[in-house]
Design a protein around this nucleic acid. Structure first.
Length: 674
DNA sequence: AAGATTGCAC
């Protein structure tokens, strides 16, 4: 194996740069001597980490000699593995190679790209002892290397020690802080920079705006926006996109839209920022229509776009839409990078298509913690407690370190499936993994104890919490009190909720239901009066079904629907048939703000029943029916749907605010426990 | 010759 490779280069350092860039692409085995037209360099044989890539080995090494143009080397410089090429420093020390700015910058850039801060430090110390020890450009690159690698203390130290700084120096540090979630540190630098008489530019502003978006309010961001206008950078596409993103993060979608519309030059990022803004705000329809608009305007959706769109489909439960877009991604030949894959599997998992989610999971290039957590979310929300526990144990077995989200998922799965002992066990297990329980974990445990009927233990648990209980904690207890009809404790829990979150109608309704089931009409009226006085309005209940890519919305006793007569007739037909097989209407779940005689009528046309009747009219026999609801499904509807699933022999899936009910053959996945 | 914007699980 003594091969000879000839590389045509214009200078020695170009050769080394070419090799630095191209080495992972070219097969140059050990003991190969490499020569250039400037002579032979035996030292290059020590480059042992050259990797052969497929098909090229023959070309380079199969013959005794081949000629590679250095431009070609550079063009093929796709960096796959991460040799940082530090041996070049030895060559410089030995005088075989003359260092120059580009060489150092290339080395530093590689360190930055692969996050190799240790190697970067070696390069840094080498530079300190070289003729470039006072070179501003090289020091800016070093500073950037530290900042990008998250070594902000090193970056700061270098910044403070640098005798001369320019715009780039300041901007590199600002962007370092802003990219590492240190918005405050980034923003204080801005006035200091102005004080030194330096002019910010588009690079500075995009970083400052990113940092401003992480502040608790929009005040600072607006100020930075004013500076953008003053310096004339508001029309730059980076600055503009950052502005759109910043306003969108403060939920100021309209202002984001105004900035967006005013942008002379837009790019995919500008669109993505706005689409993500709508998605975060829960405005699925807006996000999807922007997604379509983006393509009409001839912008190709990117990974970021798909990620937002799948996330929208997941949260609105638009499985059909999501599948369609998934097909679109496959057709366009786009690769499933991890974060798109994660949202995609989350979408399937959350829609209850666990099988599809599993398929995506297996196809992911790499299963990250988020991927595992997304699967767990799916299991949890569909009441698949045992599967969730198995999945979690599998994670631990193969050495994936769980985080607080993982525990929240598994705890919530235990709670939804009534796995009391398992839930308590995993709560204790958090300590072993050194994860401090957050208030959401405490909420789940209160829920778990409460559902199991251990109300006193739940109360004791709340009293012994090391952190201040929030409204959510008391709401969990209140919900359990309603389930187990415990009036005294329910009223006590409700008091705490009213104090901490006075405008939520949910707890008022729950308390009133508790009183009603005990026949305490006076107390029911009192809660009603309280709601009126404090201006709390009950959220109108509604249900919707997605049929052939269209969403059909229903409200209780819907008389505005064009097909209301057909729907009502269908429900009456169904209602009669399920009564024959054992369904007994349960009026105790009707909110008692209506007259007694109206109750039966109100009950009969709850929105989920109308949606179900409509779906039965419009979908082929045997296909699953998916209904979504904005509040919890009531006991009577739950019972009725169980009978319907048996009567028509179909799977009916109802998604309410925090879980799914899978109805099949007369029973529900929640085992009447929700 | 160095510095910039957009995403996923609760």
């Amino acid at each position: 194996m003594n091969k000879h490779i000839v590389i045509l280069c214009t200078s020695k350092s170009t050769l080394y740069n070419a090799i630095l860039h191209g080495k992972s692409c070219f097969g140059i085995p050990n003991k190969t001597s490499i020569s250039t037209r400037f002579g032979s360099y035996a030292t290059l044989a020590s480059f042992t980490d050259f990797e052969a890539s497929e098909g090229e080995e023959e070309d380079c090494c199969g013959s005794s000699s081949c000629i590679i143009q250095d431009k070609d080397l550079l063009r093929r410089s796709q960096i796959r593995n991460s040799p940082t090429g530090l041996h070049v420093l030895d060559l410089i020390d030995r005088g075989s190679l003359e260092a120059n700015r580009a060489l150092y910058n290339n080395l530093l850039k590689k360190c930055t790209h692969f996050g190799k801060v240790k190697e970067g430090r070696v390069v840094h110390s080498h530079i300190v002892h070289s003729q470039f020890k006072d070179d501003l450009v090289i020091h800016n690159t070093i500073l950037n290397m530290y900042a990008k690698c998250g070594a902000l203390d090193d970056a700061r130290k270098l910044f403070d020690e640098m005798p001369s700084k320019d715009m780039v120096t300041w901007t590199a540090l600002i962007s370092g802080y802003s990219q590492n979630d240190r918005a405050e540190d980034a923003l204080v630098l801005f006035p200091q920079m102005l004080h030194f008489g330096l002019q910010p530019n588009q690079f500075t502003f995009s970083s400052l705006l990113k940092a401003s978006g992480a502040r608790p309010n929009d005040k600072h961001g607006r100020l930075v926006h004013a500076f953008c206008l003053k310096y004339g950078y508001d029309s730059n596409v980076y600055v503009g996109s950052s502005l759109v993103d910043m306003y969108a993060r403060f939920n100021l979608i309209n202002e984001a839209r105004v900035v967006f519309d005013g942008l002379v030059s837009k790019n995919e990022v500008s669109w993505n920022a706005l689409i993500a803004g709508h998605a975060r705000k829960g405005e699925g329809e807006h996000a999807l229509s922007m997604f379509r608009e983006m393509q009409r305007a001839d912008f190709k959706p990117t990974h970021f776009t798909y990620s937002s769109v799948f996330s929208v489909c997941a949260s609105t439960g638009s499985l059909e839409q999501g599948k369609w877009i998934h097909a679109h991604v496959i057709k366009s030949g786009g690769k499933l990078v991890s974060f798109v894959g994660n949202t995609l599997l989350y979408m399937y998992a959350k829609s209850g298509s666990i099988e599809d989610a599993k398929k995506v999971f297996d196809r992911l290039v790499k299963q990250e913690l988020v991927s595992w957590n997304s699967m767990l979310t799916g299991y949890a929300q569909h009441g698949l407690g045992k599967e969730s526990v198995q999945w979690f144990e599998e994670m631990l077995r193969i050495g994936i370190e769980p985080n607080h989200v993982t525990f929240l998922c598994v705890l919530s799965a235990c709670s939804h499936a009534g796995l009391l002992d398992e839930g308590l066990y995993y709560f204790e297990l958090m300590k072993k993994h050194v994860i401090e329980p957050q208030v959401s974990h405490y909420v789940t445990i209160v829920d778990l104890l409460g559902r199991a009927g251990l109300l006193d233990r739940a109360l004791k648990f709340i009293r012994e919490m090391p952190i201040e209980p929030t409204a959510a904690v008391w709401k969990a207890l209140l919900g359990a009190c309603r389930m187990h009809k415990n009036m005294e404790l329910g009223a006590y829990a409700a008091e705490h909720v009213f104090e901490l979150d006075p405008y939520d109608s949910g707890p008022h309704v729950l308390l009133s239901n508790i009183y009603a089931s005990a026949g305490r009409w006076g107390d029911v009226a009192k809660v009603r009066r309280m709601m009126k006085e404090s201006g709390v309005k009950k959220e109108p209940a509604c249900s919707w079904v997605e049929i052939e890519n269209a969403v059909h919305l229903f409200v209780a006793n819907d008389d505005a629907h064009p097909q209301r007569e057909d729907i009502y007739r269908k429900w009456e037909e169904i209602s009669g048939k399920i009564k024959e097989i054992g369904y007994v209407p349960d009026t105790s779940h009707v909110l008692l703000f209506v007259d007694q005689h109206e109750r039966e009528v109100k009950l009969q046309y709850h929105s989920e029943k109308l949606a179900l009747a409509f779906a039965l009219l419009k979908t082929p026999p045997g296909s699953p029916i998916r209904i979504k609801k904005n509040i919890r499904v009531c006991g009577d509807c739950h019972s009725a749907i169980k009978f319907v699933s048996k009567l028509v022999d179909r799977e009916i899936i109802v998604r309410d605010t925090n879980r799914f009910h899978h109805f099949h053959d007369g029973s529900c996945s929640c085992r009447d426990y929700w």
